[in-house]
Design a binder for these strands. Sequence first.
DNA 1: TTGTTACTTTGTAATCATTACAACTTGATG
DNA 2: CATCAAGTTGTAATGATTACAAAGTAACAA
Lengths: 141, 141
Amino acid sequence: MKVNFESLIDELKNKKIRLSHQRLKVLEYLTTNYNHPTADQIYNGLHDEVPTLSKTTVYNTLSSLLDAGLIRAINIEDNEVRYDINTHDHGHFKCESCKNIYDFNIDIDLFEADQLSGFEINDKNVFFKGTCRSCIADGKE
Amino acid sequence: MKVNFESLIDELKNKKIRLSHQRLKVLEYLTTNYNHPTADQIYNGLHDEVPTLSKTTVYNTLSSLLDAGLIRAINIEDNEVRYDINTHDHGHFKCESCKNIYDFNIDIDLFEADQLSGFEINDKNVFFKGTCRSCIADGKE
DNA sequence: TTGTTACTTTGTAATCATTACAACTTGATG
DNA sequence: CATCAAGTTGTAATGATTACAAAGTAACAA
């Protein structure tokens, strides 16, 4: 999944969100490091380049990007939130050995649960856990 | 979804997990209050009946029940884990207005993502967010 | 029934991600 | 380039969860 940095900036302008230096750097980080990072990883990853960056700003920025719908939050473990620049519907697989998160395509509309008729659905999430192919090959399962 | 308390006890015995008073009370609470409670709700709900119960015990108990596969953890929000006595595959819908969690049936095997071939999948989760029917009827959406 | 022992429980303190807050700074608009 | 609402920063607070060590108890055997 390739995400265009320029089009993200256009979206920020459309939504009247200021293009602050810090915000652009966080967005750039997310488009460059497409590995579903945590807030802490973003903070550490940008620290050399933007020494004045504070962790509060990372959280604030992620919060406004979430509100604007430019990114999505992934809650798989209870002790970490990961952020995804890919806002298209897709599933996540977390390897319990190497901890990596893999994307996979799903047709999420296959779930037309009649039990939810009359419900308004804003957000659909699918995630699996297990052991990824390369960890199995390495005998780490 | 009806869960049989007796069969849960048999499972504990099979898995050599001691039937302590506290553990049985937590299990009983989960079978009686089938509303996906948090650890805190379980603790408060049992406090009158088991005044000596500590919150650490609730966490310890939930942890061993999870390990034994008798319950499942639900991570929808980043700031709360909910526990589910129903370990069969099913989806969860969280209403962002009334905060209730609804179950719905899904055929989770519809997801045979070829991208995950060679992966070992241990756990499949599906959750939606939105507004439930009764909150929509009450104009709370 | 009792003794033994390993497993459990408990309360307190620590941890760690996230949020609140108030002073300072800056992007956008005219 | 002046203005000011919005953004940033550091510190302190919050709140769920975990670590730990002392005290208690379930399970098993004799």
